[in-house]
Design a protein around this nucleic acid. Structure first.
Length: 570
RNA sequence: CGGGACGUGGCGCAGCUUGGCAGCGCGCAGCGUUCGGGACGCUGAGGUCGCGGGUUCAAAUCCCGCCGUCCCGACCA
């Protein structure tokens, strides 16, 4: 491709409101343009990067025996009603009606459609199957942000496994786990597999692949020894042994005390880890109390996962007053009954604790959790903090920020049962298919790569995903001899199968250098009258920043060698 | 959904307080000089000032409503 003919609209200034580095650079370097909130047009450079990612994904999926499909993006409501998700997913699904007023949805994932196709599987002899597609998904995110990191329309490689039993699912799941590790390694992404919450997908287990970046929105808990990693929404940590003194239940006045901190600083109060924090929530319209240690934070997803609640919201002060008789700040579960009370295990067996008395300006001290609180359910509900002890080895845990680029789920029979997807087993009896589903976000991978590989000058693609592998920067393209040399190198590189961009634009050298670095092409060879005169050219490696002069007759050979080395990273 | 901000040529912004010819930088087109790290001169094209209503002799500017976008939070496979 000649740069003078390529549509690469680079910008001198950063786009407004682009916070994430990938958002800013992909826009400035001419890879994408925003159309509306969470929706982006991909320009030719981005299409090339995305296509390379798709190729690597396909190769690894095919390697585990998966077969490629292409399903519709538009779905009839009945399909989603059958799985129950028409009601479950709420506003995140784009919904529309056709001219006959039939309800339709834009697919946000394809368990339903693939399961409907799996109805044609009739015998265990046809299993296992792994089916996949690379296809557009629509999700009406409440708050799209950070460019391609969170969009409302995006491409996903989604695959679905169909097995006769749980052991088969385990094999399919493990195969995907390994395929994903291969994919991300080949892409040049260091993706950490972490135990995760399954959320709306349902099922019995899931693993997310997280790429570390400050622009990400997931928090993960990782043990530096490598023996534990989990999303904050699913993470656990070892609790220190606590020995409490027994205490007598006693109500005492605490005027003006509204928060955990207030009570910790109050004369006669208690430190945060000796308080019971009482939160009030509505879980699908049911009022519940959630109890945590005073210094612990609630993870709402854990509450959702434990209870199966779809809609979770904090109760407001009026609703609380009506039910408990006090304002937030003086709430507690002592002598409370009639409401569901959930508690985090960090409170188990604790005595001599302090908590609100459900009377404004009063608290209880000497609270014995087992004796004084009517706890219905125990469940891990708290956020883990950096430095807590690993459940496996006791070493201090780290909390890292990252972006989810892949997620694999053991679905079990959630969808196959709803659709009646059964096969005849070896014994001749019907057996419900056991399913898994697995996703990789393509544009999100593009963004994760951009977040990982960039510097002040612009993007720095690894060779295997770069839109072009080599750029020839021609100094003085109006000089016939120089342009002739550049053209010859261009032809030889093309003939050698190298993806090369010939910068024949009538621009000054500085512009060409700056643009090639902004766009992030891994290798640049500069051909100018000065070099042509002494039969040399300058080779620049964008990734290492190294420059070297090479003789013209060796340039092509060296470039081809470097390109081929770069395409398959170790 | 709650809180905050913004919307003016392709991009980045000023002008709004105090109503009075719609501006600046970059980019773009033509010509010329330049040319190994984002050149310079001259000439020029390009704008329903987000949309609708109101106030006024007069609205980018003041008032009301709506829409859009971003940020924080809530939410999120």
């Amino acid at each position: 491709m000649r740069w003078s003919q390529a549509h690469i609209p680079t910008l001198r200034d950063d786009p407004a409101d682009a916070e994430a580095a990938s958002h800013r650079l992909l826009t400035r370097a001419g890879y994408m343009r925003q159309l509306m909130a969470g929706v982006y047009s991909l320009l030719p450079l981005a299409v090339k990067v995305r296509a390379k990612i798709a190729t690597i994904v396909r190769e690894e999926m095919d390697a585990i025996g998966a077969q490629e499909f292409l399903l519709p993006a538009i779905h009839p409501a009945e399909l989603w009603q059958k799985s129950g998700r028409w009601e479950l997913v709420g506003e995140e699904m784009f919904r529309l009606q056709d001219r006959r007023q039939s309800d339709l949805a834009l697919g946000m994932t394809h368990e339903e459609v693939f399961t409907s196709l799996a109805l044609e599987l009739a015998s265990y002899r046809q299993l296992p199957q792994i089916w996949y597609q690379i296809q557009t998904k629509f999700r009406d995110e409440p708050r799209p942000k950070s460019g391609l990191l969170r969009t409302r329309e995006f491409t996903m490689k989604d695959s679905y496994s169909f097995d006769i039993d749980a052991a088969g699912l385990d094999r399919a799941f493990d195969a995907h786990h390994e395929a994903y590790a291969n994919i991300f390694r080949r892409l040049g992404l260091e993706a950490i597999p972490v135990a995760a919450s399954s959320g709306l997908m349902g099922g019995t287990g899931s693993v997310e692949f997280i790429v570390r970046t400050d622009a990400g929105e997931d928090l993960i808990v990782v043990c530096p020894t490598g023996d534990y990693a989990a999303n904050m929404e699913a993470a656990a940590a070892r609790l220190d042994e606590v020995l409490d003194e027994p205490g007598e239940l006693e109500k005492f006045p605490t005027p003006g005390v509204k928060t955990i901190d207030d009570l910790a600083n109050f004369e006669g109060g208690a430190p945060a880890d000796r308080q019971v924090k009482s939160l009030t929530y509505f879980l699908d319209a049911e009022f519940v109390l959630v109890l945590l240690r005073g210094d612990h934070a609630l993870v709402e997803q854990k509450l959702a996962d434990h209870t199966g609640a779809l809609e979770i919201r904090q109760a407001n002060p009026d609703e609380i007053k009506e039910r408990l008789g006090a304002e937030p700040g003086s709430l507690g579960a002592v002598e409370v009954s009639g409401f569901r009370i959930l508690a985090d295990p960090a409170l188990k067996g604790r005595t001599n604790m302090t908590t609100g008395a459900n009377e404004d300006g009063f608290h209880f001290r000497g609270v014995d959790v087992d004796r004084d609180l009517n706890i219905n359910e125990w469940s891990d509900l708290r956020a883990i903090e950096a430095g807590e002890a690993c459940v496996e080895c006791g070493n201090p845990l780290e909390v890292l920020r990252g972006i989810e680029v892949g997620h694999i789920f053991k679905l079990g029979e959630r969808y196959s049962a709803a659709f009646g997807a059964e096969v005849l087993a070896e014994e001749g009896t019907a057996s419900t298919i056991v399913m898994g589903s697995y996703g990789i976000g393509l544009e999100r991978s593009v963004a994760a790569l951009a977040e990982t590989y960039h510097d002040d000058a612009g993007l720095k693609w690894p060779m295997q995903v770069a839109p072009f592998e080599v750029v020839i920067s021609v100094i003085r393209p109006d000089d016939a001899e120089t342009m002739g040399v550049a053209d010859e190198i261009y032809r030889q590189l093309l003939a050698a199968g190298v993806e090369v961009l010939l910068d024949d634009r009538d621009e000054r050298p500085g512009v060409k250098f700056a643009d090639s670095e902004l766009v992030g092409i891994p290798l640049r060879i500069t051909v100018g009258p000065r070099g042509v005169a002494d039969k040399s050219a300058e080779l620049f490696d964008r990734r290492s920043g190294e420059k070297q002069d090479v003789s013209l007759d060796k340039a092509v050979g060296l470039l081809v060698e470097l390109v081929e080395q770069g395409r398959e990273p170790v």
